[in-house]
């Protein structure tokens, strides 16, 4: 268990490509932080620098009260879970889990006891004498977890550990991993490109885009107050609606239509207006026309896809709200409106 501190940590690969721009953040003891972003944005690079598998080319990294820039990965007191499990194919599950302990000079008895304990925690007791090739994907993932848990590290690192599993298993493992981390209280950094995983597992989310941190915040903050249009459109399914609008005399208008809501202290000019699909009400006091073209039936709720002022727009309504293709009036909740700079995409 440890505080992890990145101070302007950056990575430039030998070919000159800057995969991670200097980034700083601190992870509290026992916190579960999720690094999320599209593929190729530098998540793995950042995580691998923390693990020591990739050299840090700028800044300093502290784990606990040590600066670990030049510390060997085996001495950083970390455990890592890889996307393709990375089990040793020639070792049994028991040996796989115990390998790290063996190399730390732990006695055979202690290793066996710890392996048994980890196996029990992860439902692997029956599988201890199998080779990885005799396990299913989910079981392999649990062995990989066991290998991490047994070392009793001060920091867990996960690199997309669930991407190779099918959707059902993924949901189940997501909960198991989170519960395990809660129980053990080990500081964790979890990398994923899946925003659902990020939202459901994280204490805090770090959104990365092209090697740069876009936003750091709790899932609720990230979801409700995205710092940029990138975060707004990346987090949430369906994503936040983003439409071109103008601020005129303190009022937001789309295509010169009626006022959608107050713009607060935002100066007049073009903006991007963001509103989550569920922050919209049909009918009632609404005076903004919305052309519904498709109704997506999802059981518990419905998604209405269409256009607002000629721009694509989606509305999320509960199953009790009837809707059919055609034009209807909607009301955007004023407190849910987010305004972004039309040039930079940053929140205003």
């Amino acid at each position: 268990m440890a505080v992890v501190k990145l101070n302007a940590v950056g990575k430039t690969y030998p070919n000159g490509f800057e995969a991670v721009k200097p980034s700083s953040f601190t992870i509290a003891d026992g916190e579960f932080v999720v690094l999320v972003g599209p593929s190729g944005c530098g998540k793995s690079t950042l995580l691998r620098m923390v693990a020591g598998l990739e050299e840090i080319t700028a800044g300093t990294l502290n784990i606990g009260d040590r600066e670990v820039n030049d510390v060997d990965p085996a001495d950083r007191d970390i455990a890592m879970v890889f996307q393709n499990y990375a089990l040793y194919p020639h070792m049994t599950v028991r040996k796989n889990i115990g390998y790290g302990l063996k190399n730390r000079g732990t006695t055979a008895d202690t290793i066996e006891a710890k392996v048994q304990e980890a196996a029990k925690m992860l439902n692997l007791t029956e599988l201890l004498d199998r080779k990885p090739s005799q396990l299913s994907g989910g079981q392999r993932q649990r062995v990989a977890m066991g290998r991490a848990v047994v070392r009793d590290p001060s920091l867990f690192l996960f690199d997309e550990p669930l991407s190779n599993l099918d959707a059902k298993l993924r949901n189940q493992m997501r909960i198991e991993i989170k519960a395990l981390q809660r129980r053990l209280g080990v500081t964790s950094i979890y990398v994923t490109h899946d925003q659902v995983e990020a939202m459901t597992m994280a204490d805090r989310i770090i959104v990365l885009n092209s090697g740069e941190i876009e936003q750091i915040g709790t899932p609720a903050e990230i979801y409700h107050s995205p710092a940029s249009t990138f975060v707004a459109s990346f987090m949430g399914a369906p994503p936040m609606n983003l439409i071109e609008a103008r601020v005129e005399e303190g009022e937001i208008r789309v295509n010169g239509g009626a006022s959608i809501g107050p713009a607060g202290r935002c100066p007049s000019g073009p903006i991007q207006l963001g509103v989550r699909p569920e922050d919209v009400e049909l009918g009632g006091a609404g005076q903004t026309p919305f052309d519904i073209s498709i109704v997506e039936e999802l059981g518990a709720h419905r998604l209405l896809h269409g256009h607002l002022g000629g721009q694509p727009f989606t509305v999320h309504v509960g199953k009790e709200v009837a809707a059919a293709p055609g034009t209807t009036q909607i009301h955007l909740k004023p407190e849910a409106l987010r305004l972004f700079d039309s040039q930079t995409g940053k929140a205003m």
């Binding site: 693990a51 020591g52 060997d72 085996a74 970390i78 089990l87 040793y88 194919p89 390998y99 190399n103």
Partner: peptide, 22 residues
């Protein structure tokens, strides 16, 4: 696989014993 080697790097400090054991 690269990740198997990397898992070994985290599990074992000595590159010689990594070679013979993995």
């Amino acid at each position: 696989p690269r990740s198997v080697n990397e898992a070994a790097i985290i599990d074992n400090r000595s590159s010689t014993s990594r070679f013979w054991q993995v």
